[in-house]
Structure formats: structure tokens, C-alpha cells
């Protein structure tokens, strides 16, 4: 098992001076995930918070090879890069045993919505790279429009809570299961508040032969509207309420990586966040009830999937 002190000694591939918000969850994810491989690493990054904040002209916060792609094609870009290196090796221009790792990354907008077909295509073709989605539940980079990862009942600028609607009326898309349906070798859901689990999953994803997908919850103080020092506490609450269960699908086998001792009520998750504030009005009580029902259903379904794929 990796020790925090040991991985801390490794070189940072994302360095200081980036422009991410106070208390942002993204650096917490990448600090751990990028340390899970010590091989040379190439990253393709779709438009999103991470991309705009780390490459403010004329600077870059990346200490490794990094390519910017358009919003929709981080996965397609990385598929091309991976294929190029394969060809270089085949033609003897690079040693056959030279290990190079590839990572495509985007936020939930660039993954759940805009980049979904490129991602699906690259996964189906079996390119050997890792795709990491940092899911902050909205288009946070452009001011917090709703995405298909925005949870039910959340207020976003394009699903504002008011007299007409109590926030977003649609259910969050379950992307991890969509990716699992591609029958790729490794799919997992992680959380920065549990670094060991995130590290292990990233390591597995890098080591596996073929495509791997990581979906990591990324608390966003700006769009979720909570106090920025609570980022990690809130990420923990997401696990304890089972709003964001930690599980992996390893060669088709589902495994739950974290079961809370006592499953907490979703109100503990909703309460600290400004985007859910309207739900605590009397007339919106049904939304919380519905939210809890959805979380319970998903949690139950996950257990069934574990049983079924044993």
C-alpha cells in the first residue's frame, strides 16, 4: 500500500501558480492520480476549468506533455496520440519496451455531454489510455450552466430555482454505468476525500491493457455555493450519504469500495450547498423526498449488480 509520505516525494506533474478557485477540488484529484504512474505521461485536456486555469497565456502549470483539444474530442485526440506511438514502436523508431502512459481528461460538460461520442468511440476501439472525468456537476468554467451531470433539484443558471421550477427537474446521467456497458477492462468511480482509493484506482487504470475510465467527484465551492474550506468534508458526505458511491467495474465485475457504517440522509449533503437552498422551503419538500428515493434506488441497484456479476 502506498504511503502518503512516499507519493509526496514524487515530482508534481501539475505545479503551483495555476488559477483555480480557492478550495477547488480539481488539484486534489490530479495531485494523487498523476502520481499513480511514474512512466512518461501525455495528457490531452478538453476545454474546461482545468484547461483554462492551468494554461493562462503565456504560462503553463503542466510539468509534463500536455495537449489542448476542443471541447468535444479529448478522447479522440488521445486515441490519435496513442495510435501514433504504437506505430512508432512498430516501425522501430521507439524501443518496443518503452512504457508511455496516456491520459485524456475533461470535466463533466466535456465528458457527459459534449465529449460523449468521442469518448464512446475511443473506448469501443480499445485504445490503451485512461480517461479521467472530474465531475463538478455543472459547466463551472462558464458560470454554472446545467449539464447532464447536474443533480436533480440543483439550481443552475440554466435551471434556476424559482416559482416555476425547483431547480433541475431531470435526473443525473449515470455515466459510469454507460462506460461499464462498453465492456472495457476497467471503470471506476472515485472521490478525492479518499486518496488511497483514488490512487489505487488510478494505478489500476494506468496499468490495465486497454481503455480505462475514472469518474471522480469534484466539489466546486463556486458553483455548489459552500464555504471553500469544506471541500473535503463535503466530498466525504457524498460517500456517507451514498450520493456518490465508490465502486469499480473490473473486467465486468462490480465491486463496492466503500460502505458507510451508517447511511446518512441526503439532507446532510444538500444542506451545506447554496445550490440546493431552495429545497428547504416547505413547498419543495417533495424534491428532497424524491432525491432520497433516487439515491436509495441507485444504491440498491449497485448491490444487485455486485451480486449479479459475482
Amino acid at each position: 500500500m502506498a504511503k502518503l509520505k512516499d507519493i509526496a516525494q514524487l515530482e508534481d506533474r501539475l505545479v503551483a501558480g495555476h488559477g483555480m478557485c480557492l478550495g477547488c477540488g480539481i488539484p486534489l484529484i490530479f495531485k494523487v492520480a498523476l502520481r499513480a504512474t511514474e512512466d512518461p505521461l501525455i495528457i490531452s485536456n478538453a476545454t474546461g476549468c482545468l484547461e483554462v486555469c492551468t494554461t493562462i497565456f503565456p504560462r503553463t502549470a503542466w510539468n509534463t506533455t500536455w495537449v489542448h483539444s476542443a471541447f468535444e474530442n479529448a478522447a479522440a485526440t488521445m486515441a490519435g496520440i496513442e495510435a501514433m506511438y504504437k506505430s512508432l514502436k512498430r516501425n522501430g523508431k521507439l524501443p518496443q519496451d518503452k512504457e508511455i502512459k496516456f491520459l485524456a481528461t475533461a470535466g463533466d460538460g466535456g465528458t457527459y455531454d459534449i465529449g460523449l461520442q468521442a469518448l464512446s468511440g475511443a473506448m469501443e476501439r480499445g485504445h490503451n489510455f485512461v480517461y479521467l472525468c472530474y465531475d463538478n456537476n455543472a459547466y463551472a468554467n462558464t458560470g454554472g450552466q446545467r449539464s447532464s451531470a447536474t443533480p436533480f433539484g440543483a439550481s443552475a443558471t440554466t435551471s434556476p430555482a424559482g416559482s416555476e421550477i425547483p431547480g433541475k427537474l431531470q435526473r443525473k446521467k449515470d455515466l459510469t454505468k454507460i462506460l461499464a456497458a462498453h465492456n472495457i477492462p476497467y471503470v471506476a468511480q472515485a472521490n478525492p476525500a479518499r486518496w488511497q482509493d483514488l490512487y489505487n484506482k488510478a494505478k489500476k487504470a494506468f496499468e490495465v491493457e486497454g481503455p480505462a475510465f475514472l469518474n471522480v467527484l469534484c466539489p466546486c465551492p463556486t458553483e455548489w455555493k459552500y464555504d471553500e474550506s469544506m471541500t473535503v468534508k463535503l466530498a466525504k458526505t457524498a460517500m456517507d450519504t451514498c450520493v456518490w458511491p465508490l465502486y469499480e467495474v473490473d473486467n465486468g465485475k462490480y465491486k463496492i469500495n466503500y460502505t458507510p457504517k451508517e447511511k446518512k440522509s441526503v439532507t446532510e449533503w444538500l444542506k451545506p450547498q447554496g445550490r440546493f437552498r431552495h429545497l428547504f422551503k416547505e413547498e419543495n419538500a417533495w424534491v428532497i423526498e424524491e432525491y432520497q428515493k433516487q439515491v436509495d434506488e441507485d444504491w440498491e441497484e449497485l448491490h444487485k449488480l455486485v451480486e449479479m456479476t459475482k
Binding site: 503551483a16 495555476h18 488559477g19 493562462i56 503565456p58 504560462r59 503553463t60 502549470a61 503542466w62 510539468n63
Partner: peptide
Amino acid sequence: INPNAGNSVQNHT
């Protein structure tokens, strides 16, 4: 192309 990897350290956040 930005050949100066990690030069954001000059940006004092």
C-alpha cells in the same frame, strides 16, 4: 507550443 513546462510558478496566486 509552450516549451517552458511548469512556468506558471511565476504566477503568485
